[in-house]
Design a protein around this nucleic acid. Structure first.
Lengths: 279, 279
DNA sequence: CGCCGCATTTGATTTCAATCAAGGATTGCG
DNA sequence: CGCAATCCTTGATTGAAATCAAATGCGGCG
């Protein structure tokens, strides 16, 4: 999709993988390709077979720790859905009709002005919860950045179920509080950091978020990773223009702080320098 | 406090009402001065007399709707505390030791960089909940903007109590989700709006937030209100400098959009113009 | 393999807000 | 009442990032 710097409101048509929205690199997996890397390992599935039993985020999403009958109940309410890169799942200001768990892939949460400026206000990774429970409308759009799979629930069903299951609500509360902390840290970046600090902070954040596979006990920040963002999307995360993002990255490359083997790949050569720059 | 644009980290000493931190204007009340304006009106207090029974935010804070024995239990855990303007209640990155309900007054939530730049990431009004439950550290400092009264709980006590009272956790979840929505809307402002749009959005937001007395059924946005912020603090909310805030306000005044009778008072003369400017 | 479409980079220029620097206006206090 | 402190406003200048404009080169496809 040609990035609009025009003043046109973003249309709602779905352009499947339009305009070079990169599909996820072949062979890449958010969970690693090691077949042993399964959190519920070789355990025999419980009595009732359901999609949840084989769910790769089963032990990290809000479903984690629920008893089998509860999982079974949830399982009947939810359904798997594939979302291709660039495809929207939820629209800003629309009635909040569905909520979901991310199983695989990455999605962006965005808000837009009437004249088409966009700000990415959140990024959802596997096991993250998306959507607005207990509310009439959604404050942000949710659009897939990569091909993704999600486990969707009707918001009404979910709300009702959650109110009857305090343990689930508690997990949701913990997640929401953590997300609020992250969001507030990002406000500092948007309001008070300059372009080079923003880029450095962003790269460090990415190296941490993209390393969280949930498999290795503590993988630590990734030294090398593949961005789920185009340059324009990086700009939309940081409140910058695409040109400024490009120039800052070029500078980091020529200073030997990072290597940029492809458009989407980043290798951190001097983490210390990034930490210093991040302020 | 002389606003630091120096690169010194903010010190932690408490400067009571220092540097012209305005105390709340005499006679001003966040709840209106009409004596009939009490949400539980002339009802006879229940059996057990406690501070909660006369609490002015009793029916708006997360305590609302709790049964009497539960209120009694909470009441024994919490204690009232006065916080004078400029006084900190919680420090960024410190262990999360306490949480609180705001009874009266306004507090700011801030994050700071090592070199002393500050961003206000939230504002707490009466009936709002502050602090970080279910977490080890607090991501933001909390400092009173005006003389304030809060109802404080030990975080440990609160966490334990909340986990046993799903209804309380549900209220906290609803609040946290709403706060996350507001925060994300503010990210759009910080990342994508220009100075004049920021100021217009800010004034409209203030006129709504400061009108919420909880007394009149639907008071609507206030036409005239008193800012709980100094110019520097407005700048810290909007990610601007004090000079830019001043210039933008002067412009709105000379354009006849607002009147600024005192440093802290704002009267909106042309709401439509503000809405247009807010974008 | 070579071409085409776009995303990205790079360069030139502009502009908006930050910075630097005084000069007023409130407020509180002696 | 007058002074001091400091908050706020206003002006001049700078500067960082946006904008405008044009190459460049990657990636997909025939």
């Amino acid at each position: 999709m040609e990035r609009e710097r025009t003043r046109l409101p973003p249309s709602r048509r779905f352009l499947p993988n339009s305009g070079g929205q990169a599909t996820w690199p072949p062979g890449f997996s958010w969970f690693g390709t090691d077949p042993d890397c399964r959190e519920h390992g070789g355990l025999i599935p419980p009595i009732q077979m359901s999609a949840c039993d084989t769910c790769i985020v089963r032990n990290r999403a809000i479903c984690a720790g629920l008893e089998d009958p509860e999982i079974a109940a949830l399982s009947t309410m939810g359904r798997r859905r594939a979302v291709t890169a660039g495809e929207p799942l939820i629209w800003e200001d629309d009635a909040s009709l569905l909520v979901a768990n991310v199983i695989e892939g990455v999605l962006k949460l965005t808000t837009s002005t009437a004249d088409g400026r966009e700000q990415i206000v959140g990024v959802a990774y596997p096991s993250d919860f998306i959507g607005r429970p207990f509310g009439q409308t959604s404050a942000a759009s949710v659009v897939a950045l990569t091909d993704a799979r999600v486990c969707v629930f009707s918001r009404n069903d979910f709300d009702r179920y959650a109110r009857e299951h305090p343990e689930l609500e508690h997990k949701l509360l913990e997640r929401t509080l953590a997300e609020l902390d992250r969001t507030r840290a990002w406000m500092m970046l948007l309001g008070r950091k300059n372009a080079s600090e923003k880029i450095a902070t962003f790269l460090l954040d990415m190296s941490e978020r993209l390393a969280e596979t949930g498999c290795a006990p503590h993988p630590g920040p990734a030294k090398r990773f593949t961005l789920p963002f185009s340059r324009q999307q990086v700009a939309d995360v940081l409140g910058l223009t695409i040109e400024t993002v490009s120039r800052q990255l070029t500078k980091l490359k020529s200073d030997g702080v990072v290597a940029l083997p492809t458009r989407r790949d980043v290798e951190i050569l001097d983490r210390g320098a990034l930490v210093t720059l991040a302020g």
